[in-house]
Structure formats: C-alpha cells, structure tokens
Design a binder for these strands. Structure first.
Lengths: 352, 352
DNA sequence: ACGCAGGATAAAATCGATTGCTTACAAGGG
DNA sequence: CCCTTGTAAGCAATCGATTTTATCCTGCGT
C-alpha cells in the first residue's frame, strides 16, 4: 500500500478502535464561531439573521469534518428523539413479522428509528417495556396484537387491539367483511356443513372474528353445529397448532365439507391432519385460512385465505402514529382495513 | 369502581396525556439531599461511604415517587446506553427473521434494547445506518448477511459475513460440514446424477457453499456436470425464485435424480416446478434445501434440508458482541456453527 | 453628532443524569 | 493540642447539544 496522494481522501476516515465523533463544539472551534451559531445554522432555525456566507462556511465545515450530531444530547434538550417503540408478542413469526416489515419500512422512510421488544403475552413485561421505551425517549409506541390496559403518556397506536382506551388509536381489520368473504366463497361452492376453528383466548382477534362468522352465517341461513366448532388453546406459532384439533374433529365422524381455520398457520396444520387421515383437500374437505402469511402460498395445495394486507396495516399504523406525534390530524379512535379473498387451491366445490 | 383504600396504590399512576417523569433532582429535593448523593446510592457506586439508613431512605423515596432514570441523560454522561444496532438486508423474510429472533431474545434478556434497520443490499445505506446507530449511542452492531466494507468504531459482529476486517467477529456456518452432510445423504441414497443450484452473487454464503460442495463431490468421486449447475440471480425472497431455473433444467432433458438447492425458499419453488412438470418428489427427483426455515416443514412433501440453527446463531452472535462490549474475552475472529441434516420427505432412494 | 434599529454573533441557561473533588465534622494517634 | 484518618454529603464540571437572552457593531435618520 502506498500513501494516498489525491486531494480527496487525504485524511483517512479514522475509524479505528476508539475514535470519538466530532462534536458541535469542535466544529465551532474550528470555525472560530460559537456552538450556538453552528447549531442554529445546521438546524435551519427560522427567524435568525445569519448571512449566507457564514451559513455556507458552517455547512461546508460540518460536511468536511464529517460532523454527526449526537442524537442523545440533542434529544435530551429538545425532546425530539426520532425514535419510537414497537411491542410484539413474539419475534420470528409470520404474522407479526410481516406487519413489522410494513412498520419498519415506513418508519425508516420517515427518518425514525425504532426499538422492538417482545413480551410473549406477559402483561407485566408490556408495562415494563413501555416504561423503558419512554425512558429511552420514544416519542410514540406501536403495539401489535398486544393488550394495552392503561393509558400511556405518549401517542400509541394498537394493531389488532380491541380495547378502547383513551388516547389510543386502533387499527383493525373489517371483520364483518372478512366473515362475509369467507362464507360467501364457501357457500357459493355449495358447502353447507362447515366446521369452524376459534382462536386462542389470548389472541386479540379471536372473539371478533368468531362473532362475525356467527353473525354472517345466520344471515346466510347457515346453521352452525356446536360439535363442528373446535377451539385452539395452545400458545405456539407452528402449524402443529391446528393438527390435533382437526384430528379430533374428524374422529368425531360428524360430516363436514369445509373448515374455516382461525389463521393460516393453523390452516396449514389442519390440511396436514386431513391429508394424514386420507382426506383430500379440497376434493373431500375445503380449507380456508386467515391472514395470507407468506407461507400460505408455498404449501400444497396452496392455501385459499382471507388476506389481511399485513405490511399495509403496518404502514397505516405507522402513519397514524406519526400524524399523532406531529399533531397533524385530530387523533382517530379506530382505522379499519379491508380484507381480500385469495382463492388458491385449498377450496373447491363441495362433494356430493 | 370505588376508591382504592389499601396503602400501596394510593397514588394513581398519573399516566395522563402530558405527564412528565420525575427527575433525579426532584427526588433529591424531596429528600433534602444532593442529586449526586441520590445518584450514587441508586447506582450502588462502590467506594462511597453512605450510611445504610440514608440509603434506605433514598431507595424508598425513589420507589415511592416512581422514579425512572432518563436513559438519554445517563447515556450522555456515562456512555453506557445499553443499546445496540442490528442491520439486516430485509425485514419480514424467514431466514433473517429467525436469526433476529435469537438476537432479540438474547439482547432483551441481557437488558439491552436494539434498533433494527434494513438496507436492501444498498451499500450506502449500510454506512449511513451505522453512523446513525452510533449517533444514537449504540454500543455495538450486529450485521446479518450484510457486507461490511470498513472498520467500524464500535464492536461489530457479522453473521454470515465472509470478509475479514479488522476488529470484526464473523459468525459462520461450517460449510464444509454442510456439504458433507448433504452429499453423503444423497450419495448413500444412491444418487449419482446430482444437479446443483448456486446462490445469487450478492448473497454472502453463495460462494462458500458452492466451493465446499465442489470439494466434497470430488472427495466422493462424484463428477459435477456443468450443464447440471444452475444459478440464481434475482433478488427476491419468494419460492418463485427457484421455479424458472428448474424449469429450464428439466427442459434441457439431461438426466438427474437429485437437486441440491441453494436454500429452502428456492427449494420450495424447485419442488413446485418439478411437480408442475409431472415429476414426483422424491420418487423421480430428490430435493434437498439449506437453512431449515420454518416453512420447510410446512410444505408437502416436507423438505429435507441442511439445518442452520438460525436462532442459535443469533444468540451466539449476540453473546459474542456482548463479550466484546464488556471486554470479557479477547475478540475472536471467527466463530463456527455446525449444521445438521434434517431428513424429511423430499429425498428418497434414487430411481433405477 | 446622537440615538437607535437591526444584523451578526456570543454568552449563558438548560436538559437529566454521572463523577471527581471538596468540605465539614468527629474520632483516634502521637 | 495538633495532625491524620474516616465518614457523610455537597459542589461543580461534564456529556453534546438546543434555546433564550445579551452584546457588539454598523449604518441610518434627524
């Protein structure tokens, strides 16, 4: 290696073990100016008279010295941390992950960074993490599928939360529409004996989804036989979740030609269970899922499902939060998102 | 609701819209003490003589006033932010997500919080986010499947990075062992005409994996026919990735009885392609994947794959980083993780 | 020539902690 | 009786910015 000789990179980027970033004060000193002046210029504070020449000088120096403001210091004073906190029940699981992907995209795009914390449905952790987020200066919080029990001192947007708490904006799926899409689809394929799978009690969408399915069944004149209603209870996020309940359902020998699963994960396990019992999907039994997680289109047969626009939901929640942080709009209580029916291969005409 | 009467929760948690947390100063004032003293006690600073009675008084007051130290202020002074930054190429995609799940678990367990940023393989974003992490006080960085080009002023652990850069610890899979597992499995099932799928050039494991497959094939006396080697090139994370290349492979009419896919995602697409061309998996063609993402066991046939312990890798990387931050151990250059063979349903004896 | 209105920049307070250095007082040693 | 030692706590500087207030200077009007 030889010495660099070109004008540009004379000074190496100095990234060795313990370099210390340049501070505002150093920039000011270098320029023979006061830190305050430099700050004012770099932040484009309005209503200050500073000649363009000085402004240019300062900006040039900042760039040249590779000045990066220390966000901690700035935030301490100004209360703008450009940071928000995200609460999820679990990491590395399809549904939450895809929502977070939408959130992350939108936040980074808006210049915000975010903390993530997962609580595995433990209420005391929820409270603790909220406190820690705030202690670290989070200006807002997004809670995904998380039960919030108290008002919180910063703006909070809940995704798939169904409690109405003062000051909290909920982003929820239009469950009425979802039920309608699912049942119309099956009904129009000729299914009249439909089995239902309810979600776990701790999952925030469980009740809502079930209520609307009941309601719309009634509307269609479909009778729901209680023996054909099975319930999830285990807290797991693998398809195994849906396997045993469907096994039992089949073992009960009650006739049914379609199954409305609680979500895609459980639907995938259900399809497995049916196949392992020599029932063909969809020839013998149609299965419809909920969510449209990525894996739903990898299975065979590919899963017919009620799609929640997960990433979109994340983006909407984020936008709502940012609006509230900036007081851009009067806070809304609830934002509804529309589901779509994705017809794939796991549903078909009811057998004779 | 009636008034609470028990001694504990006399004072409501005051979580209304714009409450302001109590500061150290307020606690000190309340006690008639100096903030410094309070700080010293609450942090259990060693080598200070403060009588137990005072200590108790302070701790009681802190608890009673629900004092929460402001992490921003603390970090500004003490440089301990208990924060690290995580870089990933993409959010909401199986492989990275599962590694992040291990990272998140371990970090939260150790009392650290983390920022996540995704860069979609854009080098300039990588640099920018590293700067921003540091500006926000990150004490270390974990980079997953991300190309790091320069040394960085804080400890950095790279997962599946293969560049050796001063001061960076790499956590990598034992690719030699992986190749051995995959090829032994197929070989012992009688496969002699094996097709290979190489990864995209921007994926950090591509070359390493391919080199070891070649090397071990030679060892087994297996000849690799160049016409049976296909390459991925698109930057996508859906199984569609593997579909067209396998279609072409089959169209070429060259005989093969097994396919070593680059990863599970591509393997799932490959299986689809084969099935759509009326080839049975594994009766006509065996397919083996890499990674063992969650979805690998949801497909039908369930995917035989070389398992990377993804969450474990995340935990190992995190532990390595924390060790370096605490100077607990001399920094290691490389940490190797062992793969496992997961035999499922997509591989079987070679057809005659 | 004097006062005064800005324009340009400096000074100082502040945010909420941590930390090194005093100080005040009491007890023990020579 | 003075000096050391130790205990208990206060003082003040500091971290790196932002923000409010003050000061200096110049040119202009009268």
């Amino acid at each position: 290696m030889k010495d660099v000789a070109d004008g540009k990179s004379r000074k190496p980027p100095a990234r060795l073990k313990s370099y210390k970033p340049v501070s505002l004060k150093q920039v000011a000193e270098h320029l023979g100016l006061n830190p305050a002046t430099v700050s004012v210029v770099l932040n484009d504070v309005p209503g200050r008279s500073i000649p363009q020449s000085t402004r240019d000088r300062i900006k040039a120096a900042a760039k040249e010295m590779n000045y990066q403001p220390n966000l901690l210091a700035r935030s301490l004073r100004s209360r703008r941390t450009l940071t928000i906190g995200i609460l999820v029940p679990e990491l590395g699981e399809g549904y939450h992950t895809q929502i977070m992907s939408g959130i992350g995209d939108q936040l980074i795009g808006a210049g915000y960074f975010y903390f993530t914390a997962h609580h595995r449905h433990q209420a005391h952790l929820v409270d603790e993490y909220i406190r820690m987020f705030i202690g670290r200066g989070a200006q807002g919080i997004i809670a995904v599928d998380t039960l919030i029990e108290h008002p919180v001192p910063v703006p909070l947007v809940a995704v798939a939360g169904h409690r109405h708490i003062e000051g909290i904006t909920n982003v929820v799926l239009d469950h009425a529409r979802a039920a309608e899409l699912a049942l119309n689809h099956l009904y129009s394929l000729g299914h009249r004996h439909i089995a239902f799978m309810r979600g776990q009690p701790f999952s925030s969408d469980s009740d809502e989804r079930w209520n609307h399915l009941q309601r719309y069944s009634a509307k269609l004149g479909l009778e729901i036989r209680p023996e054909l209603v099975i319930s999830l209870d285990r807290d797991m996020s693998s398809p195994e979740l849906g396997y045993p309940v469907v096994q039992q359902l089949v073992a009960s020998k009650l006739p049914f030609t379609a199954l409305v699963a609680f979500n895609d994960i459980a639907a995938i396990g259900s399809v497995r269970a049916l196949q392992d019992l020599s029932l063909r999907v969809p020839a013998d039994v149609s299965v419809i899922g909920f969510d449209d997680i990525n894996a739903a289109s990898y299975t065979s047969p590919r899963l017919t499902t009620i799609r929640q626009p997960l990433a979109e939901i994340g983006r909407i929640a984020t936008q709502a939060l940012l609006n509230r942080i900036h007081d851009a709009q009067p806070p809304r209580d609830e934002i509804t998102v529309l589901p779509t029916l994705m017809v794939r291969e796991s549903t078909g005409p009811a057998p004779k």
